[in-house]
Design a binder for these strands. Structure first.
Lengths: 338, 338
DNA sequence: CTGTTAGCGCTTTCAC
DNA sequence: GTGAAAGCGCTAACAG
């Protein structure tokens, strides 16, 4: 913020007119004479005049800045969401301020504090894994700052939510394996204290039941990272349990499982089929390419931002909406035999 | 930005004192009596008073906001950099505004325009691959807004730069291959209009020469994405040219090359060794694991932000500095035979 | 120890 | 068609 910027006052002085006239001329106000407008605009161009956003924000009580609180940027899914947010924000003249919670409750609260200082017009939040208390979010409601949750929402808070249909995604993935003739389907499951892990597990269970496949509890294993997949897949192999496929809660876990399977001499998908979740970039890079469930991160970001803008600009209050985005099964080599 | 926020004026009115007294009391100014301070602070707490950042920015001519222009957030390296930036920004009370160029010159210019509206105290930039004209960056200099380049810098602009020792990283990678007995080393090179691409190529060339390895121009191929690697690697194989290893400008390109090699029946590393650059998450997930060059992204973000803060807060101008961060060769399975 | 005033840059009513 | 004045929220010089 360099103060040397040309202001309306500077232009007014040089032209020997008042700042208000300059202001009006710049906005093409009908009252102002063509001649004055010409002079003002010429000088503004010459000096490369730029309205001072801060002054405008102060006057309009609107900053056109929105805040985003996100667990971790370094995940393909979340950075896709950010891209979507940015896309829509750009189109509508909003700037985006980002703060990472790094899955840490205290940092999430701190980020909220920062955003409560009055700089933002609204906020987009995906809740950290750790968070169990939601007071910090309630404060936005109290201040009348619109809040839209994405991906990881909070049931207890009445606000707009844009989420993924995790249940259906897992259902599709599991049913796909069944259709491919698999019956002994392992599920590497996410943490069951989180909706996302629950829904994906439930989708798996429902698909199994609906298709009359026997559910073997021993094939449902808590495992949701690349590293733990390296360990758990080996343990699974060593256990001697029969299985013909693995459906994992995310793509990293699938990549880990694939690696161990290949190293143990299994052919994918002939011996063991693998299906991930997320459609991360990695799913194309592994060999064979990974069948996975696409989560529309970019679209989610766009929808969340659109909804937030709607809230910011709405004249009369409207009830909160929850939008559930459909996932899409992307069949690739790691599961396709027929 | 809800206008219903409590202001200093509100507190002053309620206490029957002047706004300036309230302001001073809140900052624990020595002139103010303990009693007044107590009253003011109590009321401020009761009404949950928060100073209006916008008003402060206008008054102080400082927003404590910095801008970041980055090619793509959805790259592990860049999102690591952002995390580093955020880390330091948080510590020092700065907020971070992010804009992606998506490797598009026009969007980069647009992002600069947005940031030139006076909201930011300084800017961090990593230049898009496309960019060949640098006028949009010069404008920050003209406005007196400090600019620090990271990773992809611009030689033509006199500014602080935090970059990676790409030359040395490429040198190490190439020499490693030579030590492993490779001689016909392919280089999938980055764009030569960017320093980064040049330096990595030059490191490769120097290592070849220093070790008396004949350089075959046909083995130096412009190719820097996963997709193009799929194409170029196949073309390379079909060309009948002899080669025993590939050193790629980044890990995605390496992943693409590996995939095609494997599909053509080559053993990695026995037949062909592969070395990437970046130490992306992917490098652990591919099979075999990928030898690569670690780039300290998080550290780069921290250093860049620290340097920017130094510029913003410096009293007298100082000459620009360039900091070159060391890379580290991470030897994994894709290249190790001995 | 506290109040008055002015001003950061801009817009907008009201007046002429 | 244009200008003067006030105010968005805050602070600092100046005055008592």
């Amino acid at each position: 913020m360099k103060s040397s910027q040309v202001t309306i006052k500077d232009i007014a002085r040089e032209l020997g007119i008042s700042p208000s006239t300059v202001s009006r001329a710049l906005k093409d106000h009908p009252d102002i004479s063509q001649e004055t407008k010409r002079l003002v605009n010429e000088l503004a161009a010459k000096y490369n005049y730029k309205p001072n956003i801060i002054a405008l924000s102060l006057r309009n009580q609107r900053s056109n800045v929105i805040g985003v609180i996100i667990p971790e940027i370094v995940h393909y899914f979340f950075s896709s969401v950010i891209s979507g947010i940015e896309e829509v924000a750009n189109e509508h003249g909003y700037s985006v301020m980002i703060s990472q919670s790094v899955e840490d409750y205290n940092r999430e609260v701190a980020a909220c504090d920062t955003f409560l200082n009055g700089i933002i017009d609204g906020i987009l939040v995906s809740v950290s894994k750790e968070t169990a208390n939601y007071d910090h979010f309630h404060r936005f409601e109290e201040e009348g700052i619109p809040i839209v949750f994405f991906d990881r929402a909070v049931d207890e808070i009445l606000a707009d939510k844009i989420i993924i249909d995790d249940f259906d995604g897992a259902y599709q993935a599991t049913e796909h394996l069944i259709v491919q003739g698999r019956r002994k389907i392992v599920h590497f499951a996410g943490p069951q204290n989180r909706l996302i892990g629950q829904n994906r597990l439930n989708g798996y269970l429902k698909a199994m039941r609906d298709n009359g496949v026997v559910i073997d509890e021993r094939l449902i294993i808590p495992c949701d990272t690349f590293q733990s997949a390296l360990v758990e897949t080996q343990k699974l192999i060593d256990s001697g349990l029969k299985f013909d496929s693995i459906f994992t809660v995310n793509d990293f876990t699938a990549a880990g499982a694939m690696k161990v399977l290949l190293r143990n001499g299994y052919k994918i998908p002939t011996d063991i089929a693998v299906v991930g979740f997320g459609d991360d970039q990695t799913s194309l890079m592994v060999e064979p390419t990974l069948t996975t469930v696409n989560q529309p991160g970019f679209e989610m970001g766009k929808k969340a931002m659109e909804q937030l803008i709607r809230r910011i600009t709405q004249s009369k209050p409207e009830p909160p909406v929850t939008e559930i985005l459909k996932t899409q099964l992307i069949v690739r080599e790691s599961s396709r035999v027929k």
